[in-house]
Design a binder for these strands. Structure first.
Length: 563
RNA sequence: GACCAGUUAGCUCAGUUGGUAGAGCACCUCCCUUUUAAGGAGGUGGUCCUGGGUUCGAGCCCCAGACUGGUCACCA
């Protein structure tokens, strides 16, 4: 492994510590009794505390030094004074261990007393300290100046996502996002559990990946010798549980879709789906707006959230607009009662690209997506979607061409999708078959499998049920003002890192030549290697740098030899 | 997939017509007892993303590629 100078220095310090009889990775418990936050909240002059954390900054001034210790709750200033730490003649603990052998990033434990400095900073006077874990790799070190400006910020997204551990250590605002993420999950659980809905778990490996239109990941089970799919949605399993007699079930579901990756799509993402029996989509709209208002309050302490240039307000109630009214409003075109041909003509007139595989539903969806969707900044329910594109949703009670479906739009994007669930098993079978036909026609969004077990479940009878899915990643993006999904996932999927080769092929070849004739005249070796000027330069520099070969100038000329 | 931008020290970034690779911070050495983005002095540190080309000479110019970010398209 190629080590930087900084890393070598730290390893040397590690060896010195061991030579002094200090274990840089002690096994025993450290009796922490305060956090930095508790110290600041319940500050009491002279109070004895035991704290632990990472050393994050140091200002050494001879026999005294101020440092900052960072724990899970924040940072606290600590004061090291040589004569406080070393009461006898031996000043090694301060002069050597603290000043020379500790580094930024090391974990230390501190016993000390609270005091306030002359400039008013709440500080721990160190009476004793112990190295708890030595850090061998230097952390990025952003610092904030007096004006609140950040210098040397660790901002490169790639580095931050690949090394999220380092990102979390040095960027407190990143940690804040993930704390809010967990608060959101907790808030939803609380909201559902208070209503006695039941949290469940359903299979992630499924013989048929149903419940949504998406390309699944496929894997293989060895004992059964069958393909298995990683779930793209959990809808069909949760509805089986409603058939089984639960009144309300919900699941936070990791879903997997083998599609493109960009700032709003990760191959795995989290959805929440909830199904409640004896309800319809009108009830679910009320439920949804109450839920989101509650969640926004729990996460941010306010129903308002800033997202880019927009301020959105999650306070219930939200506007409700049918898809037909929305299209009429933004395009002047009334889709009601129109044939497929009329819709296609309207699309062309609006400049929307269409093709033969598009059915009525798809055409309407295109118009909505192109002309309407982006306009809904404040939370808005769009209701009554075309039947063709909603194969799991109950036909509208007033219009057989529509379904009882809504999506909640925020900042022009969908964050929730809900139905009065289709529970007529015969209708459901026909819808699946229609999807199959669409898929055969070439619509790659249509579902090409029929889940017969799900149909069997419906045949036993499912009570009227309303269900809703919420994209958790997208919601937390809105609540934390992050335009990228990678910012709200601890470990977003990344391309594998390139492996660095220890010695290149050219270098190996040159070393091999040198071994047969050592030393060798430089120009002769260059000639023999057959490398271009640039490549030769690179190769010989690589070898000398890694101390594999050396170049010596003698009376007779330049010679290269293997070390 | 298309277009735009980027890739130089551990971090953040400069880099002249193509002529010995730079700064600040970090790190190392020394001085400094209540400081605070970063006190003073001196030093170390480089695969200039990769490969090829042009050239006496390439971080810089040309070609090809990799990776990353952004915008759009696609996808829910």
């Amino acid at each position: 492994m190629q080590l930087s100078e900084l890393e070598i220095v730290r390893r040397e310090k590690l060896a010195q510590l061991r030579a002094m009889g200090i274990n840089p990775y002690p096994a025993d418990l450290f009796p922490v009794n305060h956090t930095s936050k508790q110290i600041k909240q319940d500050f009491e002059e002279g109070k004895k505390v035991i704290i632990a954390g990472r050393l994050m900054s140091r200002r050494i001034q001879g026999k005294a030094s101020f440092a900052e210790l960072q724990d899970s709750t924040g940072r606290i200033q600590v004061y090291f004074n040589r004569d406080e730490i070393c009461d006898g003649e031996d000043k090694t603990l301060y002069n050597e261990v603290y000043k020379k052998l500790l580094d930024i990033g090391d974990f230390i434990g501190i016993e000390g007393e609270l005091f306030t400095t002359q400039v008013g900073e709440k500080t721990v006077m160190v009476k004793n300290f112990k190295l708890l874990s030595k850090a061998l790799k230097p952390l990025p070190q952003p610092r904030v100046d007096a004006d609140g400006k950040v210098h040397d910020a660790f901002t490169d997204p790639e580095q931050r996502y690949r090394q999220r551990y380092a990102d979390l250590v040095v960027n407190p605002q990143v940690k804040e996002v993930f704390m809010k993420r967990t608060k959101l999950f907790n808030a939803m659980r609380t909201f559902f559990n208070e209503r006695e809905y039941f949290e469940v778990e359903t299979p992630i490996l499924q013989p048929i990946a149903g419940g949504a239109a998406a390309r699944p990941f496929i894997t293989h089970h060895n004992s059964l010798d069958i393909p298995l799919y990683m779930r793209i949605a959990n809808e069909l399993y949760l509805k089986r549980l409603i058939v089984g007699g639960f009144d309300g079930v919900y699941e936070f579901s990791k879903n997997f879709r083998n599609e493109g990756m960009d700032r709003t799509h990760n191959p795995e993402f989290t959805a929440m789906e909830i199904y409640v029996s004896y309800k319809d989509y009108n009830w679910m709209m009320d439920f949804c707006e109450q839920l989101l208002e509650f969640c926004a309050m729990e996460v941010n302490g306010t129903t308002e959230a800033t997202f880019g240039e927009h301020t959105i307000n999650f306070k219930a109630p939200y506007a409700r607009v049918t898809m037909a009214d929305s299209i009429k409003h933004f395009t002047g075109f009334d889709i009601t009662g129109k044939s497929e041909d009329e819709l296609r003509a309207a699309c062309i007139e609006m400049g929307i690209t269409v093709d033969k595989t598009m059915g009525k539903g798809k055409l309407i969806d295109e118009i909505f997506g192109e002309k309407c969707e982006g306009n809904y900044i404040q939370p808005t329910f769009i209701t009554d979607y075309p039947k063709e594109m909603s194969p799991l949703c109950k036909e509208h009670r007033d219009n057989p061409e529509l379904t009882e479906r809504f999506e909640l739009m925020v900042c022009g994007k969908e964050i929730a999708n809900a139905y009065s669930e289709l529970n007529d098993p015969i209708d459901q079978r026909e819808r699946f078959e229609a999807q199959l036909k669409l898929a055969e026609k070439g619509d790659d969004e249509a579902t090409a499998f029929i889940d017969y077990d799900f149909l069997r479940a419906l045949e036993y009878g499912m009570p009227p049920t309303s269900g809703m899915g919420i994209g958790m990643d997208r919601l937390i993006m809105y609540l934390t003002n992050n335009p990228s999904i990678q910012e709200v996932l601890f470990f977003p999927q990344m391309r594998p890192e390139k492996k660095t080769v220890a010695m290149s092929e050219d270098e190996k070849a040159v070393v091999k030549m040198l071994k047969t004739s050592n030393p060798m005249e430089l120009n002769a070796l260059k000639e023999a290697s057959g490398l271009s000027n640039k490549k030769w330069d690179k190769t010989i520099k690589g070898l000398t740098k890694n101390k594999i070969a050396k170049v010596e100038k003698t009376e007779e000329g330049l010679f290269v030899s293997v070390i």
